[in-house]
């Protein structure tokens, strides 16, 4: 046999073993499906959380560069005085835009967004103050300058409260980062559990095939030859688990997308649910395959040398 022939036979043998291991899973459908679903759920869980966090990060990212300050005016300040104040502020070099909202306009807006219309009518007087929304100039991007501006505004006579709208956003971002870290830990733990599930499944199938392994070793089978079908079994478990995870995730997103789109429409559709379907379709089976082959390798490595002809 020349070297090309040998290589061809080797590849052919791999394809045969690959298909044979799939056939083995097919012959025990219930056990295989249970294992695959367990792997699928373990992969889908961190992936789903990752999709959530990516969406949250994307929403908060839209306001990344906005430095918006809300100025709540004292109750006794009238609409005319408010307008004047707004125009005066616009002339400041570190302010690029202002918007004045009278207390009745604020109430109207709140009525629309909250849907509490008739309840608001029962109030004896409008509880909302007039607001000037100030957009800091673009070159005032550094936090210190913004804080500076905020302080100057807060000291003004007619202003009850000056609030940097970034603050809640920053909190959201650090919350998001914490959650991301938590998801990473969860993903690591679930990956280990996938390894263990696959390792244990492979261990059982090795024990079931002890006699066969002994015979193969007696007639000159190398460790690689013995290992191969088990590695492909791990490959299939991981791959199919990844596909199941992807389908689970898409189904869940389809279920959740209705309410989320309804929510988005109330915020003028400033955000939309990102499915990440394409990325996950590549990533989930790939991660599954890596974990599957690694789990099988660990299991076979541990048991292979223990099974010798006697």
């Amino acid at each position: 046999m020349d070297i090309v022939d040998r290589f061809k036979n080797y590849l052919l043998r791999h394809v045969q073993v690959m298909l044979a291991s799939l056939g083995d899973l097919w012959r025990h459908p219930l056990a295989s499906i249970m294992t695959i679903v367990v792997i699928g759920i373990a992969l889908a869980l961190p992936a789903g959380l990752l999709v959530m966090l990516t969406n949250v990060a994307q929403i908060s990212g839209q306001w990344q560069d906005s430095h918006q300050i809300s100025l709540f005016l004292n109750d006794e300040v009238g609409d005319t005085r408010g307008q004047q104040l707004a125009e005066q502020l616009l002339s400041w070099p570190d302010i690029s835009a202002v918007e004045f909202k009278s207390s009745s306009e604020s109430l109207e807006e709140f009525r629309e967004l909250s849907g509490l219309g008739s309840m608001l009518d029962n109030l004896p007087k409008n509880p909302l103050p007039a607001v000037i929304i100030v957009q800091a100039a673009d070159d005032f991007s550094e936090t210190e300058n913004i804080e500076d501006l905020l302080e100057r505004l807060a000291r003004m006579q007619d202003i009850e409260l000056a609030q940097l709208d970034m603050q809640w956003l920053q909190r959201l971002r650090s919350l998001n980062q914490t959650a991301q870290r938590a998801v990473q830990i969860l993903a690591a733990l679930l990956s280990i559990s996938v390894l263990l599930v696959i390792g244990n499944t492979i261990r059982l199938s090795i024990l079931n095939r002890q006699a066969e392994i002994r015979v193969i070793k007696l007639v000159g089978g190398t460790n690689a030859f013995v290992r191969r079908p088990f590695l492909y079994t791990g490959f299939w478990y991981g791959f199919l688990g990844g596909v199941v995870a992807w389908l689970t995730l898409l189904t869940s997103l389809a279920v959740i997308s209705g309410p989320i789109n309804a929510l988005a429409s109330q915020y003028d559709n400033v955000f939309s649910l990102q499915w990440l379907a394409g990325e996950l379709f590549l990533a989930l089976p790939l991660i599954g395959v890596l974990l599957g082959v690694l789990g099988a390798w660990l299991a076979v490595g541990k048991h292979l040398n223990a099974i010798e002809p006697n």
Binding site: N9, Y10, G220, F225
Partner: peptide
């Protein structure tokens, strides 16, 4: 066929 499959003979 097992020993031949192991030693990589062709079909």
């Amino acid at each position: 066929a097992l020993p031949l499959i192991i030693s990589g003979e062709n079909h």
